[in-house]
Design a protein around this nucleic acid. Structure first.
Lengths: 334, 334
DNA sequence: TTATATGTGTTAAGCGATTGACACAAAATG
DNA sequence: CATTTTGTGTCAATCGCTTAACACATATAA
């Protein structure tokens, strides 16, 4: 492949000058610019990103670690991150931890090896001291910060509140709250708190709590657990699902049991993945502004790369997307 | 960050020796190995992948271009690719073309800039001459080869045949064939051919063809088109959906119209994304062995990186996954 | 007419590794 | 004892690009 030197020779210029053109430094005449780009064209020159990164001591790559790629929520996050990164001329180095801490740690090392400009951590939580001083910022996406340098999250407490109010508004009295993740200090925890706090102000409603184990982030199969929950509490009339995936599977299972949504039981999901609009009825859900959140992550990393200081915590609002699973009227017209 | 030099100093060895340990070249005593790894530990040394790549003139990164990340099919492909790449100690550089050729071409250039070990192209098709001689192999995933160096695909013709036979077996006589992509020389084309060829051998069945426009790969919303199709041909009793996403939305829309699946109309999807098992009824579909296909892609690139020659075309078999959307009996028991 | 701004070239060091040539031990083998 | 194998060190070049220092033009402004 052609190198800078070749381009310089072809253009009849020195390497220094060509490099100046590429990096827009110092004074360059229009004519020189033309000659350089002509030569680059001629030779199909592609600057060697490795060499550049080596020189600059940092690359234009951003690491991303997700627990699962095929989970629609993370697929959406990934998609938004890619789009935001592209706008800033960064590339994504993708890693899937499958929820395993050992893989997470390995991937953090690989990121460090590759001198990424930053790391977006959507997965678990590497423990104390493992993250600091890697020379690049670590941004936690919808995770508790632990050792990250910054956190981007949405208002999960408010999300829980919205869900509870929606079910109560629709007339539900016997509620179920199914949390996606059982571990402590996860976003799902805060959602549950918001939900339960609202319920407590309504003495007429009654709530049962259930927990799905976190390993289902990968296989996405919540059916066995959901069946158990529904067996245990068969006549709930309103269910808050900790994620849309739980909500969708819940509707499918309820259908199999002959319970109609929303006539017999109403469901509120969480995340607003695009699948939530592809079920019948469509799933009412708490929407996270994932696009904005992803953009913020990238912006933080770009800022840090530019030597600027970064906000340690950014919180985004959520909103209720009312659809057919809580409102009969919404079932009719699409 | 610590460099090789630092490690050498810390271990009381020379740079050459340490490099030998890292790359397992020449003779090294056990004691030296110990001292090196102790020093690396001490200094939290992470070899600089940029420097290494520059020296070796190739990196351990593999580029992947998909048209959409949030599409469950590509999310699955991506997930399998990541897993396979990890096994071979490669990393994934992720790009989303959104179906735009201009972005594809840009991304191919970025890959070239980054001296990737290879590129897996799951998206569209960069035209003549744009791909050859980049210095790394381009593997087309479920795409026609055009200018790629290798292709990995599954037997789409057989998939179409299987779908037709399944619907006919179930007693359907008035079929619809909805192709996901209208363009020529796409895998969906071959699927349709297989489907139609089988239908032709059954004079008692009648088929209507429909085409969805390819832009829905990104937004995933096929509803408007599907509604039109169903309006046009409201009494079909068997539908072959060109992809599971089409199949799922079809079932949702049919539900809204009061048509029962599988009693009134039977559906066969394509791909077997995990969502196909989360609907009610579950979706019968043609399964692609995506895991194996992804592994093959990575293997091809690793082979090429090792200087070996690579197969220009690899085809995998598909299989029918019979579920509730074509078989009433399968609706009852999960 | 000085100064200052603008445009270009040369040179050399550095980024952090890899790699090969060569030298020189000590240990194992014949 | 001579030879081969094993283990380590030194040195220098290379990968392709960035960047600073310095020199030398010409053009423009004060």
């Amino acid at each position: 492949m052609a190198t800078l030197k070749d381009v310089a020779r072809e253009a009849g210029l020195s390497v220094g000058t060509v490099s100046r053109v590429l990096n827009n430094r110092g004074y360059i005449s229009e004519e020189t610019r033309q000659r350089v780009s002509a030569a680059m064209e001629q030779l199909h020159y592609q600057p060697n990103a490795m060499a550049r990164s080596l020189s600059k001591r940092s690359s234009s790559m951003i690491g991303v670690i997700v627990p699962s790629i095929s989970h629609p929520y993370f697929a959406k996050v990934l998609s938004c991150l890619e789009s935001a990164a592209h706008e800033e001329n960064y590339q994504l180095l993708l890693f899937c931890s499958q929820g395993k801490v050992s893989r997470e740690e390995e991937y953090v090392r690989v990121c460090s090896s590759n001198r990424v400009a930053g790391l977006v951590l959507c997965s678990g939580s590497v423990k104390t001291g493992k993250l600091r001083n890697f020379g690049f910022p670590v941004v936690a996406f919808e995770r508790h910060l632990n050792e990250a340098d910054a956190g981007v999250e949405c208002n999960n407490y408010e999300g829980g509140e919205l869900a509870a109010r929606e079910l109560i508004r629709a007339g539900c009295r016997k509620l179920m709250c199914i949390s996606g993740i059982g571990e402590v200090s996860m976003p799902a925890d805060v959602r549950r708190e918001g939900f339960l706090d609202v319920c407590r102000t309504h003495p007429e409603v009654e709530v049962q709590e259930f927990f799905c184990s976190p390993e289902h982030l990968e296989d996405l199969n919540y059916f066995p657990e959901l069946k158990r929950f529904l067996d245990e509490d068969p006549d709930a009339d309103g269910i808050f699902a900790g994620s849309d995936m739980i909500g969708i599977q819940l509707m499918s299972e309820l259908g199999r049991r002959g319970r109609r949504v929303p006539q017999d039981v109403r469901i509120v999901g969480y995340d607003d993945v695009n699948l939530a609009q592809m079920t019948n009825p469509q799933l009412t859900t708490i929407r996270q502004p994932v696009e904005e959140m992803a953009r913020e992550c990238i912006r933080i990393i770009v800022k840090a790369a530019g030597g600027q200081s970064i906000p340690s915590r950014t919180m985004f609002p959520v909103s209720l997307e009312r659809r057919g699973s809580t409102e009969l009227a919404d079932c009719i017209i699409k």
